[in-house]
Amino acid sequence: MNQIERFKAMVEMRFFDEACLEGVPTMEIHGELHTGIGQEAISAGLLGHLKNSDALVSTHRNHYHALIKGVNPYRLMSEIFEKKTGICQGFGGHMHPFSLKQNFSATGIVGQSLPVALGYAYAFKMRKEDSLAIGVIGDGAANHGTFHETLNIAGAWKLPLLVLVENNGYGISVPISKVLATETIAERAKSYSAWGKCVNGDDPDIVSEAVEEAVSHIRSNQGPAILEAVCNRFRGHYEGDTDHYRSKTEKQNMLKGDPITTYSKKLLSLKVLTENEIQNIFQTSKQKMFGLLKRVRGEKMPLPETALNYIFCEKTDG
């Protein structure tokens, strides 16, 4: 996967979430929307390293992971806008997208993605399949009991599991540095006989290199890996979070390090892209994602009379 594709992916992700943001003040989207704005480089770093059969279990901040895993952006955005054309017909919403075709799922409960990813990893190993499972968490979930339980099991049985930690520095308002016994999360790897590395999550090339290492470790049957990618959460924890707990200076400094701007400068200086080409990518991506938004807005909501569907898949009248 080359740098241009990584850059394109980052820009598309950014515009995808910016298009979603349009639906917040209008109440088309409600209930704690979590955008990934500022964290694009991590998902872009996954590009080219995953097979369709690999499983990815994501979190409340899941849009980019779904896109990278190949979930159709139109159907994903439809789900975020709770439309009938959504991947879950509007029953799941932005925190609970599921797409079995891509082995993609998410959970709105912090820490609960890892056990589910571990279940996939167990199944893959049991069936001697050459697939792996990625469990994504934020830094907050690294302090959840499932982190320990999952990695212990994966380490004990050498299961094909990648724990991808998107360390954006904050669990809502609490700085991770205040609640972590070690300097990094990745250094816990030793306790689980796992591979572990903490990298700069603002550069997709660095992330991609680390993912390659982690994935080849896992695919060669050596057990689990922890990849910690340090990044910034540009917005509040969720849309509506006043984010008053971070100082203006801190936020200004953070925005100066926008990974998309930084990466575009890098590609410019490496002569991978020209200024013109970069502007074209911005324009095309914006058009594409805001075009999706327009289509999605025209779609129908699920019918009220279907609200009691899907509680069970088999008949329940005894």
């Binding site: 499983a55 279990v57 079995l100 082995n103 799922s105 609960q112 890892l114 056990p115 589910v116 990813a117 571990l118 279940g119 996939y120 990893a121 167990y122 199944a123 499972a133 009991g145 499932t146 339980e149 999952t150 099991i153």
Partner: peptide, 11 residues
């Protein structure tokens, strides 16, 4: 965790 594994196994 092993109850959650059941979810991934089922999927």
């Amino acid at each position: 965790t092993f109850t959650g594994m059941g979810v991934g196994m089922a999927m």
